[in-house]
Design a protein around this nucleic acid. Structure first.
Lengths: 188, 188
DNA sequence: ACCTGAACACCGTTCAAGT
DNA sequence: ACCTGAACACCGTTCAAGT
C-alpha cells in the first residue's frame, strides 16, 4: 500500500518523542517507512513543511475543552493548554517555537490569545503586541522548563527546582495587560 | 603563523553576518582560515562551544554605558541593550537564544536583569522568575522582529509594519512586576 | 501517482600520523 | 603544540527512470 502524508507525520512524531528533534531526519523517516528518502517529496514539499505538520499535530492532540469566561482567565487557560501540549512530547517546545519562528504552522495559539484579548477592552491597536508578549513568554518558559526536565530525567541526582514558576511569570504579563485595560477605560 | 581561538570567533562572526547562522559550519570556518576542519578542534572542543563564544562576542560588542538609576528604568535599559546587540548581526537573536537554551554562554543578560530586579523590593523568591520573564520576552520579540526585518530586506515591497511593538510589550511585563512590588510593600 | 537509484553538495567529529 | 589526511556516519534535495 502507498503511504500517505499522515503516515509521515505519525512516524516523525514517534521519532521526535523517542529520540528528540535532532533525530527527526528525512532519511530516518523514510527508513521507518521502508522508502527511499526521495519518496517523501511526493507527500511533502520539504522537511520544514513536515515539521510544521508535526507541530500542528502536537497542538491538536493537546487541545482541551475551554471553560473560562473572563478574558484574563481565558488567556491563562490558553497559555496552560499550550504549555502542556508542548511538554507532552520530547522537544515539543523547541519544535513548536521553531515552526512559529519560520512561519510554517502552529498559528492556532496566537489566534486563540488574540481572540481572548479582543474581549478584554484593551485598545485594539495593543492586542497584537499583548498576544505576542504572552506567546513569547509561554514558548521561552516552556523551552527552558523542558530542557531542564529532560536534563534531569537523563542523569543528575534528580529534581532540583525549576528556575522559574510558570504561573508567576504569566501573572506578571497578565497583570501588566490588565493595568493597561483599566487605564484605557478610565481615559474614556 | 598558528591560529588562535579569537581567529575562529572572528571568522565565525563574519560568516554569521554575511551569510546567516545556517552557513556557519566548522568546515566553512576552517576553509576561511585555510585549515582542515579537524584543526579547529585544537582551539574549541565543539561547534557549540564556538557558537557560545560568538554569542558572547556579539553581546560584548553591543555593551553600552548604563545611566538608569531606578530598577524599572534599569530593566528597560538592559532589555534595549540586549535587543540592539542582537539586531546588530544577522541571525543574532536566533544565535543568542540557541546559546542560552543550550546553556553554553550568553549568561550576562540574565545576570544584569537579576541585578536590576534585586534592587526593586520585589520578594527575592520572585526575582529569578521576573528576570526570566523579561529575558524570554526580549528574545522572543527580537527573533520575530529580526526575521521580519530580514525578510523585508530580501525581497518584498518593503517595510510593512512590525507585528509587535517592543516598548509596549516590555511595558506590560514591567508594569506587572511593578504591581507585585507595590503589593509586597503594602502587605509588610 | 508513487516510488527507486543515483547523484550532488554538504555536515560534525575522531584519530593516527606528521613537523 | 598545531596541523594534515583520511575516514566514519551522517544530512536535505533533485531528477531521470521505472511501474
Amino acid at each position: 500500500m502507498s503511504r500517505t502524508r499522515e503516515d509521515l507525520v505519525a512516524v516523525a512524531l514517534r521519532l521526535l518523542d523517542a529520540h528528540g528533534l535532532a533525530d527527526v531526519s528525512m532519511r530516518r523517516v523514510a527508513g521507518e517507512l521502508d522508502l527511499q528518502p526521495s519518496a517523501l517529496y511526493h507527500h511533502v514539499a520539504s522537511k520544514q513543511e513536515l515539521l510544521g505538520a508535526v507541530a500542528d499535530e502536537v497542538l491538536r492532540r493537546g487541545a482541551r475543552p475551554r471553560g473560562a469566561v473572563t478574558w484574563d482567565e481565558r488567556v491563562v487557560e490558553v497559555a496552560h493548554e499550550l504549555r502542556d501540549a508542548m511538554l507532552a512530547y520530547r522537544d515539543g517546545a523547541e519544535l513548536v517555537s521553531t515552526v512559529i519562528a519560520f512561519g510554517l504552522g502552529a498559528t492556532q495559539p496566537l489566534e486563540d490569545l488574540t481572540a481572548a484579548l479582543g474581549d478584554s477592552g484593551l485598545d485594539e491597536s495593543l492586542v497584537p503586541t499583548a498576544a505576542r508578549t504572552v506567546l513569547h513568554l509561554v514558548l521561552g518558559h516552556t523551552i527552558e522548563e523542558q530542557t531542564h526536565l529532560q536534563a534531569g530525567s537523563a542523569g543528575a541526582i534528580d529534581a532540583d527546582p525549576l528556575p522559574a514558576d510558570f504561573g508567576t511569570g504569566l501573572g506578571f504579563v497578565v497583570d501588566g495587560i490588565r493595568a493597561r485595560v483599566a487605564e484605557g477605560s478610565t481615559a474614556m
